[in-house]
Amino acid sequence: MKLLVLLLLPCLSLSEVVKGFGECRKFFLKNKPPEFTPQWVTTVQEICQCIRDNNKQPHNLYATLYNTDWRIPIYSAYKFKKSIDVGRCDPWYIEPQLELDDAKAEACMACKQGGKDLDYQAMNSDYIGSDQFGIGYHKGHLYPVKHTDNRLSMEATSTLTNAAPQDKRFNQGKWRVHEGKVIEDLKACDRNVEAYVVTGVVPVDKNLPKLKDRVTVSKYYWRAFCCLLKNSKKRYIGQGYFGPNQTYEVETLSITALQTRLAEDYGVNKIVIFPGLSAPPPQPPTPPPNHKIPQEVEDPSTDDDCN
């Protein structure tokens, strides 16, 4: 299996490994993944995320650009339809084909077998004792459980290629609230058409720090969505978010402002999150006074095998 060596930006998750995103290009607006002009020399893998159902049939559910040097995703892209509480479990799969240069290797996510360390992706053990920097880190989902509407999609988010180290206080608090707020913001979209969402991370520094000297810690998470405005004639809208900011909050901003910030922090010339459009989409209209703001709640996640 060949990995892609790029002068770098975005990436994410678990699934079928193909030459390019393959069938998972459908998870990008107009089948076009984010564009950027990278500078950091690093190795990434485009992943078409796949999980098998009880009949062993594969299902492609989202796309990820994964950095095998940093062992974290750069971004994950998915379509948002609706949010349904389908329960939760966290089996934390790995991607066999990232490790094996073998066409016969399992093409979809699977449980890690044996005690051997993985060379090109993170492991559960990397997060054990993650308070080494004075902060405990959770495995932060890029494609979150809260944005799924069926059990297969829920389970498919729980792959170590769809997660990066996230301060556990931020993960359980402000970012979790943000995931619910995005659902509210998406109510401005045409319900008959799916919304496109991209979520990524920006490392603290390409040289600092790493969990167990293996997994790069992120400076902040970011998210952007684009969709057709409700009751409009093919008018696109979009919203950007990043956090934590300097006050440890999730900040809402335009797609243009988010792209500028990402380009500055990655040290690149330009980033276009939704290149399928001729210009960045404008922000949604101001929400009505009864716009619901989700409250912080305890995360019910588990690390069981989901049987």
Rank of each mutant, 00 (worst) to 15 (best):
Q39T: 15
Q39L: 11
W40C: 03
W40R: 15
V41A: 15
T42M: 12
T43F: 02
V44Y: 12
I47N: 09
C48F: 01
C48H: 06
Q49K: 06
I51G: 00
R52Q: 14
D53K: 05
D53C: 11
K56R: 14
Y62L: 10
Y62M: 07
L65C: 07
Y66I: 05
I72F: 09
Y75N: 12
Y75S: 15
Y75K: 00
Y75T: 10
Y75H: 12
A77W: 08
A77R: 09
Y78E: 14
Y78W: 15
K79A: 07
F80E: 04
K81G: 10
K81I: 00
K82L: 11
G87I: 02
G87K: 03
R88W: 06
W92G: 02
Y93Q: 06
I94C: 13
I94A: 05
P96I: 07
P96Q: 13
E99Y: 04
A103C: 04
K104C: 03
A105Y: 04
E106A: 13
A107T: 10
A107M: 05
M109T: 10
A110I: 03
C111H: 13
Q113A: 14
Q113I: 14
Q113G: 01
G114N: 11
K116H: 09
K116W: 00
D117M: 09
D117P: 14
D119S: 13
Y120V: 00
Y120P: 07
A122H: 10
A122S: 15
N124M: 14
N124V: 10
S125G: 00
S125Y: 08
D126H: 14
Y127M: 01
I128G: 00
G129M: 04
S130W: 01
S130N: 08
D131Q: 09
F133L: 13
F133R: 00
G134L: 01
G136D: 07
Y137R: 06
Y137D: 08
Y137I: 07
H138E: 15
K139W: 05
L142C: 01
Y143G: 02
Y143P: 02
Y143V: 02
P144N: 09
K146H: 05
H147M: 05
T148F: 07
D149R: 06
D149T: 05
N150K: 02
S153V: 00
E155S: 00
E155G: 00
E155M: 12
L160C: 06
L160A: 01
N162H: 11
N162A: 08
A164V: 04
A164R: 04
P165M: 05
P165N: 08
D167C: 06
D167F: 01
K168G: 12
R169W: 05
R169P: 01
N171W: 02
K174M: 09
W175Q: 11
R176G: 06
E179T: 06
K181A: 11
K181P: 01
